[in-house]
Design a binder for these strands. Structure first.
Lengths: 233, 233
DNA sequence: GAGTGGTCTAGACCACGCT
DNA sequence: GCGTGGTCTAGACCACTCG
């Protein structure tokens, strides 16, 4: 035997239980043994078994309730974690050259829709439109509103060397956010900027972040055709 | 004071550290105190501090390495967990009536592309096309290949009362899967089935699941216009 | 009321990876 | 080498919720 990396015990237990469910030894809706019992079976402490079971519960594979015990989930939802890095890193991870262009930078009161999403009253904010390019081809068009009250130094910041995207992520960690993923037909503006035909189908990400109750930014990112988000689960 | 739910200590510690990062007391790239030190500061055991820090590391907010210690992440990626329930539950959660129609059920050898994704050699599989409806309006069009070798009882199963989607999820837990989210223009077939114009922009989810190395199913779900995936992070 | 999971502690040993 | 995080244990108390 060579190179068999030892696996944490909790992980091994989780895998064992997972396998029993997959192998239909324990079927959806079935109750499975309680932690103390599993601890004895696997020769582990209850804490370790608990950690293992929480892993499975986080995946949605089992459902746990005090007193009622643990059951195999009936209709487990697919739970997949999307990781969305800064655009520059996405491009570079693809082996392409990245650069970006600031198309517009103005100060104004955002449209109702944006204010509503941010939960803000009428307030002047900064609108920054950026085109991200990969090997000089349009990769994503970003249309962003930033609350100056949530990002000190915004007015003085220079976004030629670093994109707003990266500047915000790096200097203004948020405490919570919302993400919407949808599909939209390219508007004439999208089309012109991304250099595609109007009406082309685009993957659009919409993201809003807050620091406590203070809105930081609201951004719509329209990706060039062909872009897909991928994740394993 | 009323109704202030007690919070797990690990969570409270994680929130405190999160706040210090958000408040720029600890900035991106900074090293933060090691676990033993935090344990003393928060009056907790090291195990509890470890749990708290793992929560933050899972969110991508901090990066931890043995010996090197813990640092605030420089360009933290947005990490959001998507939960994708069975289609019926999505529709019903929306307060709408659900039903589905099986459009086609044949046995054949899938196209190269599908076989490649599943990592399967030439093998006969079952193709099931299903239209999911919400209040009698098209909600999603599902085009699925199922490996009979991975789903015993498939040939005998009746999908009028329960959709393949739900049948598989309920009776055949997978061990791993891949998810791709993209945007596509409605093909003539998509358009006819979803009752939209050809070329309409559709959100398309592509999912493949395995049980160990045995492919179970490969499915493309095209959603009716307007559908969005939402998640908080 | 009582059984089950949720959480915490103090202590321990180990694996990794800087230096 | 050696400091730091990764993991495990045995024991304990608590919170929730089912019956």
């Amino acid at each position: 035997m060579t190179g068999v990396r030892t696996q944490p015990k909790a992980r091994a237990i989780a895998d064992s239980v997972h396998r029993r469910i997959v192998d239909r030894i324990w079927r959806p809706g079935d109750q499975i043994p309680h932690e103390a019992e599993l601890a004895v079976e696997f020769g582990a402490s209850r804490a370790t078994v608990n950690k293992a079971m929480q892993l499975l519960a986080d995946q949605g594979l089992i459902e746990r309730r005090r007193k009622a015990g643990t059951r195999v989930a009936i209709n487990p939802a697919v739970r997949a974690t999307l990781s969305i890095p800064v655009v520059r890193e996405q491009v570079e991870a693809n082996g392409q050259d990245y650069h970006h262009v600031v198309l517009e930078r103005i100060e104004a009161i955002p449209p109702r829709e944006v204010l509503d999403r941010m939960g803000a009253g009428d307030a002047r904010m900064v609108r920054l439109q950026t085109l991200h390019l990969a090997d000089d081809l349009p990769f994503a068009f970003e249309d962003r509103w930033v609350n100056p009250g949530g990002a000190a130094g915004l007015a003085e910041a220079d976004f030629t060397g670093i994109s707003v995207n990266e500047w915000l992520v790096r200097y203004f960690p948020y405490s919570r956010g919302l993400l919407e993923v949808g599909s939209e037909s390219a508007s004439p503006r999208d089309a012109r900027i991304l250099r595609v035909d109007a009406g082309t189908s685009l993957l659009v990400l919409h993201r809003t972040t807050w620091n406590g109750d203070v809105p930081i930014t609201d951004v719509r990112v329209a990706h060039a055709p062909g872009y897909r988000m991928r994740t394993a689960f």
